[in-house]
């Protein structure tokens, strides 16, 4: 079973209600766990900063802690693909068959980030992706998205898909996972988070309902470093 499970899994025979106190299945924040190197984080900050930039609407992905989030996720069961079916043979499929890379997410990031920086160095006079002008960075992202960029050893399109998915996750997840720092993602859109009771506001009839967001660990003043 996945190591994600808070309580250990074991087979058992149950008669009666087996509830016992103080066994709440708490989330795993993966605080302090790392997978990425400094160079990889640098590249990832640049990539996610173009996907969700800092601008007049508020902080972008790097400021929201998306790189921290991805770093922790890649260090855990997600990065290892522990809950994905990763048996061979691996073949390129049609889009409707989804992810078919032989690399679990952590290894896919590792290869893609290295190949992207190698490509940039070779093409842009020794500069890394993070050192390019934003227009050039955007153009490379567009090419990856469209499958028009060939990166050594990985599908740029598959990487783009996963990167964009994880960037959105890191921008909007509960802050306990290291992303959505200070709830900037939730504040940007007006999502009140984990409040769990909206009976009082149901008859808003189209008027704004402004509620400060609340996360699983508390209010917006709470922060993860």
């Amino acid at each position: 079973m996945g190591t994600m499970l808070a309580s250990p899994a074991f087979a058992r025979t149950i008669a009666g209600l087996p509830w016992s106190p103080a066994q709440t299945s708490t989330p795993q924040s993966l605080v302090g766990q790392h997978f990425l190197t400094a160079a990889e984080k640098h590249c990832l900050d640049a990539l996610t900063g173009r996907l969700i930039p800092s601008d007049e609407y508020g902080p972008g992905a790097p400021e929201a802690g998306v790189t921290t989030f991805i770093d922790r996720q890649l260090a855990g069961f997600f990065g290892r693909g522990d809950r994905w079916y990763m048996q061979a043979p691996f073949r390129d499929g049609i889009p409707g068959q989804g992810y078919q890379s032989e690399h679990a997410p952590a290894q896919l990031y590792r290869r893609a980030l290295a190949s992207l920086d190698a490509f940039c160095r070779a093409t842009f006079g020794g500069r890394l992706y993070a050192e390019l002008e934003t227009e050039a960075q955007d153009e490379l992202l567009r090419q990856m998205e469209a499958g028009d960029l060939s990166l050594e050893g990985v599908s740029a399109e598959t990487f783009f898909g996963l990167l964009w998915e994880n960037t959105i996750e890191g921008f909007f997840c509960d802050p306990l996972y290291g992303g959505n720092r200070d709830m900037v993602g939730w504040k940007l859109v007006g999502f009140p988070g984990a409040r769990y009771d909206y009976r009082d506001v149901l008859d808003h009839n189209g008027a704004p309902v402004r509620l400060e967001p609340v996360g699983l660990m508390g209010g917006p003043q709470w922060r993860v470093d």
Partner: peptide
């Protein structure tokens, strides 16, 4: 209620769904 509203854990990391592995 202190655990359930966790979008990453329950939907995106699929904690309550069948183990794909």
């Amino acid at each position: 209620p202190t655990v359930a509203p966790d979008e990453l854990r329950f939907y995106w990391r699929k904690e309550m769904f069948q183990d794909n592995a």
